[in-house]
């Protein structure tokens, strides 16, 4: 465990807590893509299949349970909570994420570290995480306004990805056997997606500011 990875896990946890807090405090999920949240729940469920078979460390097991529970809690709130579900932008959140799930699964059947049930689903979860933010980015572009909590949510997710890339660079130089190409390449693609979002987000913010100032 190195400081970059720990900081990455913490910013990832913070991003999920921001979302839970926003939904709990405002009893609203306006501007949040349910499809992205479902994809993240699927990412955690398929990645942590080894929760009961491989014990890495207490920290590792606790965090896996926290991620699975919190992502399912968000999906449950957005689908079942009587107050929250009313504010869901159903007609804006129209990204056809089932195709993304299928594409990632096919890719995992082709590209994986070992052809075992657990490894194929692990690779699937890595690919899916890279594109899980797409419905949320589409929703933000459609709804036009990026309210600051959702903006912060994506900001912390971007920070988590960036810190993980530094973690991989650090591990590459400090450990001899470190070679995790699937996670690294997929993580780079995911981070590129976030970079694109930040470019768009801040560009539109600047445009809004200049319009306000004019």
């Amino acid at each position: 465990m190195n400081i970059f990875r720990f900081a990455g896990d913490m910013t990832h946890l913070i991003s999920i807590l921001i979302l839970l807090l926003k939904i709990y405090a405002t009893k609203s999920c306006a501007g949040i893509s349910l499809k992205t949240q479902e994809l993240y729940a699927l990412v955690f469920l398929t990645r942590y299949l080894d929760l009961f078979t491989d014990y890495v460390s207490l920290y590792n097991s606790v965090m896996k349970i926290v991620f699975i529970a919190s992502s399912l809690a968000i999906v449950w709130c957005m689908r079942r909570h009587p107050l929250v579900r009313r504010s869901y932008d159903k007609d804006l959140d129209t990204f056809r994420h089932q195709y993304v799930v299928l594409a990632c699964f096919v890719l995992a059947l082709v590209l994986h570290e070992r052809f075992t049930f657990q490894e194929v689903f692990w690779a699937f979860s890595i690919y899916l995480e890279a594109v899980a933010i797409l419905p949320q980015l589409v929703l933000l572009q459609r709804s036009g306004n990026v309210d600051n909590l959702t903006g912060q949510y994506v900001l912390f997710l971007g920070a988590y990805r960036g810190l993980y890339i530094i973690n991989w660079i650090y591990r590459y130089f400090t450990e001899d056997h470190f070679a995790r190409w699937i996670a690294c390449v997929s993580g780079l693609i995911q981070t590129a997606l976030y970079a694109d979002f930040f470019y768009y987000y801040y560009l539109s913010r600047i445009k809004q500011d200049t319009i306000m100032r004019l």
Binding site: D50, S57, M63, Y164
Partner: peptide, 10 residues
């Protein structure tokens, strides 16, 4: 201590 499991990252 962390066993070097196949995937020790979250």
């Amino acid at each position: 201590s962390e066993k070097d499991a196949a995937h020790d990252e979250l």
